[in-house]
Amino acid sequence: MTPTEPAAVPAARSAAVRPPLPVKMVISGGFGVGKTTTVGSISEIEPLTTEAAITEVAAGVDDLTHTPRKTTTTVAMDFGCLTIDPTLKLYLFGTPGQERFGFMWDDIVEGAVGGLVIVDTRRLDDCYAAVDYFEHKGIPFAVAVNAFDGRVEHTLEEVRWALDVTDGVPLLVFDARERGSVRDALLVVLELALARTQD
């Protein structure tokens, strides 16, 4: 127990640096709906951007073979993180390109514990692809209406009806700019993921 040893001992000199266990959540929704704002509100770092390869399945009308074409597109992906404790770190990834149908985000989403689909009630159809994706993958998710300027143009019941999501999918209103509001939205998803483990 020598109190002289400063905390800033070069980390790699110790036998093995144990990195934290990363827990991943995915923030999804149409273009400009507030994904990066959401990540930034809770992240301990400024959201970072990287380029990821996304597989686009195009059922093109000009495709003479009538087989789905797969093309790889490079897209910008924003993400952030939050250290829970030295052994556990939450990562939040915004899925890019979801304003178009047919994207496959498996490369980013694989292993995620849950998803948050952000909705702008003025452009509901922008989030269909994300809802479909999470339903198809069986990933626990909630739909969060981003209350731009405190205004929501449709009631939650109207949104639920329009998106055709089951009662098992939580629907909530939040403000992407408010840290507490983002925290609570993520908690809804995590509670859902936890409940699934106990089924």
Binding site: L21, V113, R179, G180, L187, L190, E191, A193, T197
Partner: peptide
Amino acid sequence: PDSDLVHDASVLRRVIEGLRAVPD
């Protein structure tokens, strides 16, 4: 990351508790 561990209830509970402690 070990996918089973990440999806384990005890890990999810720890994330939930940690996130709850985040101030407004």
